[in-house]
């Protein structure tokens, strides 16, 4: 399967999934035959219905899950910055934001303060990690991912819990990080507006890859319209409430706005 060289992509592949399948212990396939790659300077976004395997794809790409079939290739020595989708630091562990950001990143105080300022979280420096709200934690996690000076940023719904204006700022930040460092970005996003405007390559996953390509190509694909409805094509519909959508459905009257 191929990926059009778009955006700032210069052909330098950082991560490649080839025919990846993941089977649950129950025997059910969570992912089947998923292939795509992420290049230096490229923003690849994974979209798809809830329960469709987006997070499983990311975790397999990172080596947290071992695929049942297929292969995952990561460029040797690849530095990864990651923001997991679900993280709940335990209050038993006394850990400030400052210490968390220094832990294993080798970042000095000035770098840490600068990174927090860029994610709009400068006031959280001395807070305890366990006391942060969901949105605050996301900002701190993005700051940590930045401080790792990654070759590849992997962001699993990075703006969840962040308010509306904050969302736009964080998406701008992700784009400018790509510009500055030339890192690749693999992201799961529910924000179709960002996906369409800020992404080089879109992979729509519902157990298998329904469709993939440039945002333009994907938005015109019948499987995409089938999954997200015509409303999503017209403008960025909120489709987060969609569950277990049936394949091949061209139109879902229940989901019009």
């Amino acid at each position: 399967m191929h990926i059009p060289a778009s955006g700032n992509g210069n052909g330098d592949v950082l991560l490649r999934l080839d025919g990846v399948g993941v089977r649950a212990p129950s025997g059910r396939w969570i992912l089947r035959d998923v292939s795509f790659s992420v290049k230096r300077g490229e923003i690849v976004t994974i979209i798809g219905p809830n329960g469709g395997g987006k997070t499983t794809t990311v975790r397999t790409a990172l080596g947290i899950i071992t695929p049942t079939t297929g292969t995952v290739w990561r460029k040797p020595g690849l530095r990864i910055g990651y923001t997991p989708q679900k993280m709940k630091p335990d209050a038993t562990l006394p850990l400030s934001v400052a210490r968390f950001l220094a832990l294993g990143t080798g970042a000095g105080r000035a770098d840490i303060e600068a990174a927090l300022a860029r994610t709009g979280a400068q006031s959280l420096l001395h807070e305890q990690l366990a006391h942060l709200s969901g949105g605050e934690l996301q900002r701190v996690l993005i700051a940590r991912a930045m401080l790792r000076r990654p070759d590849l940023l992997v962001l699993d719904e990075p703006v969840q819990g962040v308010d509306f204006t904050g969302e736009a700022q964080l998406y701008d930040l992700i784009r400018s990080l790509r510009e500055e460092s030339g890192c690749g970005v693999l992201m799961v996003s529910h924000d179709l507006h960002f996906v369409m405007a800020g992404t080089d390559h879109v992979v729509c996953i519902n157990v298998h890859v329904c469709c993939a390509g440039t945002p333009q190509a994907v938005s015109e694909h019948p499987e995409y319209t089938g999954l997200f409805g015509p409303a999503a094509v017209a403008h960025q519909a909120a489709y987060t409430h969609l569950h277990d959508h049936e394949h091949g459905l061209k139109h879902d009257p229940g989901r019009e706005e």
Binding site: G81, Y82, L141
Partner: peptide, 19 residues
């Protein structure tokens, strides 16, 4: 120590970062 602390924050994060 650093890996033990980071793992206590999130095993998943630590593993993704290559620890």
């Amino acid at each position: 120590w650093n890996v033990l602390v980071l793992g206590a924050v999130s095993d998943e994060l630590a593993q993704a970062e290559g620890w």
